[in-house]
Simulated scan of single mutants.
Amino acid sequence: MDHPDRMPLITPEKRRRGIYILPNLFTTAALFAGFYAIVQAMDHRFETAAVAIFVAMVLDGLDGRIARLTRTQSEFGAEYDSLSDMVSFGAAPALVMYEWALRDLGKLGWAAAFIYCAGAALRLARFNTNIAVVDKRYFQGLPSPAAAALIAGMVWVGIDNDFTGGELSGLACALTIFAGISMVSNVLFWSGKSINLRKSVPFIVLIALVLAFALISSYPPGVLFALFLVYAGSGYVVWALRWKRKYDARNAGGFVPPTTDTAASATAWPEADTTAEAPTPTSDTDAEKDNAGAPPRS
């Protein structure tokens, strides 16, 4: 029996609302790459699993840009992208590292893997709720794709140099915990969003890009791992330099101007704006990036 006075659970407008296929296709491909990495790790094909995580990073970096270019942003795409990131850059790297090197450490091994997995989940949650208070030039905490690259890069380099996981278990445990804690830290990491890709650049920049691709192709495992290791350390180096400047100025009785990076003071997690006009939060990647199927969120 119909009850005209009752509101339907799903309005006809929402029922008829579809999803954009193109950006969500890339998000699905990134999700598949993360799931494939888990399957390969369970079969002890760790090198393939590590490469799959890097493939997921590339796909995750494309979906948001494609959504903007084709004007196909949506709230569904933003949420879907966040869930995909959790699988590809949270669960998959933790499981790959655990199966390769941490299993023999017993409780310490699975605890380290859980710290990483929980750090990725908290990182994504904070990223989606801190949109309004962070400086878009920086990420607050290590982006989850970069953290996943540290894990996958170490596995790839170790296997390529004929190391077993047991031989590097101590270093693997330390790196896994470092990556997990870095994701939930308040350390600022450069986002790269201040780069204007539509702006003309000197010819030497193009030559530098060609040399960079040549360098990566010469030894992909080592170069990629080194690049992300430097990036992970850069935030702590900048933090130490800022702290030293403030410490020296305080001892000298000088005035320390307030920082212009609003993310530096964003220690609280504000409530997410749930109004219809609120900007849709993005996932981690533009590495944390503009999300697939969502307006740019940094």
Rank of each mutant, 00 (worst) to 15 (best):
L9A: 15
R15E: 14
I21H: 12
F32N: 01
A37E: 00
V39Q: 09
D43P: 03
V51R: 04
D60S: 14
L62A: 05
L62Y: 06
D63R: 10
G64R: 00
I66F: 02
L69C: 08
F76Y: 10
G77C: 04
E79S: 13
D81A: 03
D85F: 00
D85R: 01
V87T: 10
S88F: 03
A94T: 05
Y98C: 03
E99V: 12
E99H: 06
A101G: 10
L108K: 03
A111S: 11
A113I: 08
R123Y: 03
A125Y: 04
A125W: 03
R126N: 00
A132M: 05
A132N: 02
D135M: 02
D135F: 04
K136W: 06
L150E: 00
L150C: 07
A152L: 07
M154F: 11
V155G: 02
I159V: 15
D160Y: 13
T164M: 11
E167Y: 08
A174S: 14
I181F: 14
F189S: 05
N196K: 14
S200W: 09
I207Q: 02
S217E: 02
F228Q: 03
G235Q: 00
K244T: 13
R245I: 10
K246R: 15
N251T: 06
A252V: 10
F255C: 07
V256R: 04
D261R: 07
E271R: 14
T275D: 05
A276M: 09
P279G: 00
T280G: 04
P295R: 05
